[in-house]
Design a protein around this nucleic acid. Structure first.
Lengths: 154, 154
DNA sequence: CATCAATAGATGTTTCTACATTAAATGTAT
DNA sequence: ATACATTTAATGTAGAAACATCTATTGATG
């Protein structure tokens, strides 16, 4: 369905306004889809994001502040997210020797297993994107990058 | 900056995964920008969304359920959002005569004035989108619509 | 019209988010 | 070395979101 139908708005001030609304709307849609897979496994999208980052470390520990840097939502409270993973035995936390302010986080075997269970679900809805071509996907990505370019202007 | 740099991830499973992450990341970025304008006026993006819908009615009342239908985030609790607008005198609520379950909502003069104050801020960051062409904006919108097409498949 | 399901909206509760503050460790400059 | 700023992470708190439940009204069916 077109964004016009979805939010029942016939006219937009500009193609840019329409795009802005469409971005927010499509992302909410996407997050909602993801949520459906996540909630049966008692994990939030944010926690999943952290788990993925931890797995990406391939066994190496990573500091909380470095996790934040890699997150999609950098304003989130990584400290408490890690707490949640800890409580579920999906991650381990050890104090960092070289900098005693910092804390090293590693994914546990159980965390890796959970990701393995979730992977097919995630791939599944990513594959729905096949409705557009790989080139089109790359092209949108490039344009989105461009949109964020003048972040520190204005 | 490219999404690769922003989330410090060099490789993606596919252009589709990259697009999915980029969509979420860009929308968070967008919402954060909006939030900055909104918070000085003690209003949330959701409340703003409702106010815009109310203004779009051109003085005609609209039911709470119809507001929800037009919202970007349809899972939000419209009832309480309207409460908040009411408390700030930005909207009025009257019971609907034809259906006593329903409630009619209208924007107040004060609500219209707040929107008038916010409009330039919103237009401002929408205009930053000028960094891409109108055709490109339309094209992304069309592709996003397409992505959501097979919503009820799988 | 009596019953039962469906709809509209309000509300209760738990969890999460946003924001500010705190505490400890480290870096920097005199 | 001392003083002060910065960084890192944890925590306190108010408000918002997510989800289920409740009440009142309407619709639909026997």
């Amino acid at each position: 369905m077109s964004i016009e139908t979805d939010i029942k708005q016939k006219k937009f001030r500009s193609p840019f306004q329409k795009l802005a609304l469409n971005l927010v709307y499509t992302t909410k849609w996407l997050e909602y889809k993801q949520l459906e897979s996540f909630k049966e496994h008692d994990i939030t999208p944010q926690q999943y994001n952290v788990l993925r980052i931890l797995r990406g470390q391939q066994g190496n520990p990573i500091k909380v502040s470095d996790i934040t840097e890699r997150m999609l939502d950098k304003s989130s409270n990584t400290s408490r997210l890690v707490d949640k993973l800890l409580a579920k035995n999906l991650a381990k936390r050890t104090s960092c020797e070289s900098d005693r302010r910092a804390v090293d986080v590693v994914i546990t075997e159980e965390g890796l297993e959970l990701l393995k269970v979730l992977d097919p679900f995630i791939e599944d809805w990513e594959n729905r994107f096949n409705i557009i071509s790989e080139e089109e996907a790359e092209q949108i990505s490039a344009l989105l990058d461009k949109l964020r370019e003048n972040e520190n202007q204005a």
